[in-house]
């Protein structure tokens, strides 16, 4: 099965686009979840869990999620998982916004996000 990674993590784009299709967006965590939700409605299947990692949604600004390149009928399991994830992320972000991190910390978050998604490439 061919896959696409949807991400706002520049390090994922840099490191992985040679080996896998990467769609990079200069946007925030929540927008990435929504872009993935829209893809699921178009029939793509969710391949990695949107809340990968224990780093909280209002902590890391980065998110990388893998979906299938192929489209089929709407996959309800994928839809339920992404909607639950959006609901959970909202709960965090509404309580407390993601801070303005230093460059050094941003790079650490990028590295963690990269290792999480890299482990899902088969």
């Amino acid at each position: 099965m061919k896959e696409i990674i949807i991400t706002n993590n520049p390090l994922v784009k840099e490191e992985l686009e040679k080996i896998i299709e990467v769609e990079y967006y200069n946007t925030d965590y929540m927008e990435i979840l929504k872009k993935v939700r829209d893809r699921i409605h178009k029939g793509h299947k969710l391949l990695t869990h949107p809340l990968s990692g224990s780093v909280k949604p209002n902590e890391t600004p980065y998110k990388s999620i893998m979906v299938s390149m192929d489209k089929g009928d709407l996959d309800t399991d994928s839809l339920i998982t992404i909607e639950n994830s959006i609901h959970t992320a909202k709960k965090f972000i509404e309580d407390l916004k993601t801070p303005d991190w230093s460059e050094e910390i941003l790079f650490d978050f990028q590295t963690i996000d990269l290792t999480l998604i890299k482990n899902a490439i088969k």
Binding site: L47, T48, H49, S52, G53, M66, T81, N119, A120, K122
Partner: peptide
């Protein structure tokens, strides 16, 4: 507890 849904 892996990230990849098929692993789960």
């Amino acid at each position: 507890e892996n990230v990849y849904l098929a692993d789960k």
